[in-house]
Amino acid sequence: MIEAPARAYQYGFLDEYAKKEIRRQTLKAVAIPGYQVPYASREMPLARGFGTGGLQITLSLLGPGDTFKVIDQGADDSVNAVNLRKFIVEACPDVSLTTRAEDATIIQTRHRVPEVGMSPGQILVLQVPYPDPLVVVEPNEAKRKQMHGEGDYARLLVKLYEDLVNFGEITISHRYPTRIHGHYVIDPSPIPRHDVPRLHMADALFLFGAGREKRIYAVPPFTRAEPLAFEDVPFRVEHFFDDTGARRPCARCGSRESFLDEFLDSYGRKQFGCSDSDYCARRQESRR
């Protein structure tokens, strides 16, 4: 006689073997900073490309007592973020949800690092569409692996050189190739350049999960993360200068430090506002 299952699903949706495997590959990724560790990406109840890589890491880490936040392009309230949060509520009982980055123990994010920064003990899980930075210069995966092994990233620098020749500046806006701990170059997922320096010698752990491409990699705390650049053309972040050369403020909260999104207001005028909705909302709150 077949017994009825005690629970419809395992805690955290994934079975214990799957979680164990993901944790082991995550540990390996932390041990070899920047190295892309292959893993058996499971089928998830959402389509690949919607953050399944990040979600699997999140599910393997979350336990009762954790506090969880989801960011989608800086926002807590977009469809993708809301759906992921709903799923976590069902799959992981006793995990509390928050929108405040500093209260979270684990934050799953699509393409932003929280504006308030990360503190010791926190984990930021990034969703990655394309884990390999070399894919733009070398189509053959076997060759790419060899190039990673030998630290052969000259062709990425040729790409930067060509940008400087053609446009007078490096045009990579996101997925800026970044060298971790002096060896492996990673694709830091599509975070804007603004967020790249936050990976450098950080207090928190950054985990990168690519579900479709089946790779996990990590930037551990207190690890060098250096964007590729030339000696005489240093890396720089987006500047958000207006026509007069002044830093644009956020149209809603007035911040001059945050990463800005462009949007049209109800009169059709071009405006700039914080991409991090939680940061912006709290600044507006405190100004009232």
Binding site: V158, L164, F230, E231
Partner: peptide
């Protein structure tokens, strides 16, 4: 796919030269 100068730059970059103007 890259400029003539870029082809030469590639050799120099392979050789750990990382100064744009010198390249």
């Amino acid at each position: 796919g890259i400029s003539a100068g870029g082809n030469i730059a590639e050799r120099l970059l392979l050789n750990e030269q990382a100064h744009y103007e010198k390249i």
